[in-house]
Design a protein around this nucleic acid. Structure first.
Lengths: 125, 125, 125, 125
DNA sequence: GTGGTCTAGACCACA
DNA sequence: GTGGTCTAGACCACA
């Protein structure tokens, strides 16, 4: 659970933000529930506490979680984790498709690709 | 023409590779035609010659262009600029869509986004 | 009553000092009246007894309350809760205004802000 | 120039953000002008590069500056440094005044304080 | 214990 | 050289 790719070009803290957002969005962690402490999560993931903290701070800025010094970090009630993820995802899709269109991909080709993604049976992740 | 975004997270040399590939793919530059010299292009774009050099090297590795020491760089005949771009583009679209699906976007929502991209009139880029 | 903001940057014990001072200053608790015990107040507010203890100690240092070992804490007769609060408040206002002036706020803008605060009907707190 | 108080309760990076915002707001550094590099400024101020970077990143998030990896950090054109500072300043004044009002300060007393700040001759800072 | 700040120093890709 | 990321480790106030 919460698999990171330390070799990826995407920074670890960004992967963390994304994975945690997904878990929150999926309801795996619920509003007002406490997140693992910065140190605990860092230890469990084998990364540095500063990296976890950076991710937590970004999530806090985005209103997904809130942190109370001396107490811990918690899922914000009414957080927009899902909306945020969807919005970002749609932007990325739009960019990728616009790019493909410029390259000469036909509407049909893109539609076909989209369809194939949605027809793959439920995936492991 | 050949607009770069110096502030983008995407490295300039990658943007250059993509833009040049697009121009070649679109026939704006034809096989055996000569590309501007590394220094000229760097000066025109206001970027570092090392950056242009890196882009040219990658394009050569991909068989899109070829360089002749002392003479310059030329578009390779029979280059697969278009195929390369399309392949990469489809991969990126597939990844973005898979991501969106995981986030909870419906097939319909994605289709709608794709459609809207294709319905926008011819764009400036 | 005695609303704390656990997420505020201002430490809880400081908020406690301020709120208690306000209540004493406003006469909601009168000289020689007993304050709730450290443990009781901590339980009621859902905070750590150490935090309440720290606030009580500071209030005692300021001559606002006094404690009798084994009996409890009481409002000091002749306490200067009000004077203390007013003095601190004026200092903070002065600093905030000086800051605003440096930033370029006009005397008029600040006056207007002050007026708007005083014109808001009686507030909940 | 750019005096920091290393003993202050206010974190160094926040002081940096504020001071730089003030300089930009005052026109001491103009749009598109380059800021000192993270390392240079850190060395000059005798603090750690990470601390400077944190300040720069916050300023970038606020649209006050922009950073280009490998090139440097620059004042953003059309930045709202001044508006941002004024807005924050007015909020702080409003809070301080509301606090004072609750404590029992009269409108007149506050007005008098404000006036006195504005009547002090031009100050050094 | 908890989050927040800071230092010292390393490594990376890019310019 | 430049910004960006990350580690290791320290210290702080607060709870």
């Amino acid at each position: 659970m919460l698999q990171l790719d330390l070799q990826s070009r995407q920074p670890i803290y960004e992967q963390l933000i994304q994975k945690l957002s997904e878990m929150i969005s999926a309801g795996a962690i619920k509003p007002e529930e406490q997140l693992p402490s910065v140190r605990t999560l860092a230890r469990d993931l084998g990364i540095n506490p500063n990296t976890v903290q950076k991710a937590y701070q970004e999530l806090e800025r985005g209103g997904i979680i809130y942190s109370v010094a001396g107490r811990g970090s918690f899922i914000a009630p009414g957080n927009r984790a899902n909306e945020t993820l969807c919005r970002q995802s749609l932007i990325r899709i739009r960019e990728a498709v616009a790019d493909g269109r410029r390259t000469g991909l036909s509407h049909r080709q893109v539609e076909e690709t989209v369809r194939s993604v949605y027809e793959e049976g439920t995936k492991h992740d």
